[in-house]
Design a protein around this nucleic acid. Structure first.
Lengths: 254, 254
DNA sequence: TAGTGGTCTAGACCACTCG
DNA sequence: GAGTGGTCTAGACCACTAA
């Protein structure tokens, strides 16, 4: 038996369909244009609607399509480059950045966050919720967790809730000198509350950026920001003008 | 009308199933354990197999499950933290890093890459392929594109192809002084060749890290690295020991 | 060869948007 | 109310793995 079988691998229909559609998007459609509806596309390609949807899901995951219930499927614009790099010693909300404070509650953090903060699982922490808006679009929702022990002054804030309280907490947060921060990016799916904020359905793919803020050698705060994976490209450094949105074509073997 | 309707939103079955399964994973299963097969699980929960699969797909996307055809569905270990931060002035392959050179060809770059390099779409560029291995696992596949003009010495390399040529090219690449680099992360789906290298099926979700290398104010090289999104968490800075793998629980509204 | 996940079908109904 | 995408069903067959 040969080592590599060339013609014997039957490509799944939905994968082939994805390729065909991707080429059509490049050549026959403009950004924002509406595609024929799923039932018509499925009929046109001679496949079941579920199969056609599998191909569309791929293209949506790659940021090339946008689908909205009740409206239709449109050709997505290139992904927005969103800068997530920060000066090492700057707290969130330090200056007029792109974030809009939404609310702040005092509640126990989720278990994984509590582990990062090295607090008891049931200890209440200040939780600021804010949303990042770029080009008129909500691209990220963030939760910032601050244990009371990190910034004692927080307990003196009297605004009961809402954006006002969130702003106060962020202001007080700037008191302690920040040693540094580090960051991790991973794939996740939007929880119900984030999905609503981002105008997506629950389960939509998101890029989760977890940041730890260190003060005096300890983690003083943790933020978990979820970015829309379909419309965003996270940039670090001065790479805001990067223009990679298309998938590279299939390469030829050597 | 009230501002928030609590019981009126019928949660999709697959989403509810995802939650139930996620809790079961936390409490009843150990890492590596094999779940009952899909047909049995579907029967147990009284749903169609397709619906059950939708829930499993979510959990796989979140890195909590691993599914292998012919084998079964197992509980995934926490995601590997993979450091993707680099000193600003260091070329790839500069020292003994975790990458294994595979091959190098001289071929036209994909259109989006050519745009980044500011080369003609049909101009042949040196393309190094290498694979990143951590803990005995292939976690990323990378293509490094270097136009001949950037490093003239490359044309003198005589190794025809294979890892030897790839190593030679990476060695010559270190000649010009690197001004700096910048980086972007976005969601993509694995092409056939990358999927094979990463032991995944085509279309599997990947985190695409695009790096531009600047020399004398111009982009001298571009690398596109695709990381397995299911098993990897990309870390920047000293955050290698971050331990966020679970999704935060649903939070209570204020 | 038995058992697993992966693909595919042909329907049905629902939730949402918009004219 | 018409049209869209989202969810769901109950099957079928295929590709792959391992005993």
């Amino acid at each position: 038996m040969g080592t590599t079988q060339l013609g014997t691998v039957p490509e799944p229909k939905y994968w082939h369909l994805r390729t065909v559609l991707a080429e059509a998007l490049d050549t026959e459609f403009a950004v924002g244009e509406i595609l024929p509806n799923e039932r018509e596309l499925a009929a046109r390609f001679g496949v079941a609607r579920a199969t056609l949807r599998q191909a569309l899901e791929q293209l949506e995951l790659e940021g090339r399509l946008q689908r909205r219930r009740g409206v239709g499927t449109t050709v997505a614009p290139p992904r927005l480059g969103v800068d997530v790099s920060t000066p090492t010693h700057v707290w969130p909300g330090a200056d007029q950045d792109a974030w809009q404070p939404r609310d702040c509650v005092l509640a126990p953090a989720p278990a994984p966050v509590a582990r990062l903060l090295e607090t008891a699982a049931d200890e209440a922490v200040h939780t600021v919720r804010r949303v990042r808006v770029t080009h008129g679009q909500s691209v990220a929702a963030e939760l910032i967790y601050v244990p009371s022990a990190s910034v004692p002054e927080l307990s003196a804030i009297d605004a009961p809730s809402g954006p006002a309280r969130a702003r106060s907490v962020l202001r007080e947060l700037r008191r302690p000198a920040l040693d540094g921060q580090d960051r991790a990016v991973e794939l996740g799916s939007a929880r119900a509350d984030d999905a609503k904020e981002l105008d997506r359905l629950p389960g939509a793919p998101v890029l989760v950026v977890t940041t730890r803020y260190a003060v005096a050698g300890r983690i003083a705060a943790v933020s978990v920001a979820t970015y829309r994976a379909d419309t965003c490209r996270l940039t670090f450094g001065e790479s805001g003008d990067l223009e990679i949105s298309d998938q590279p074509q299939e390469r030829r073997a050597s």
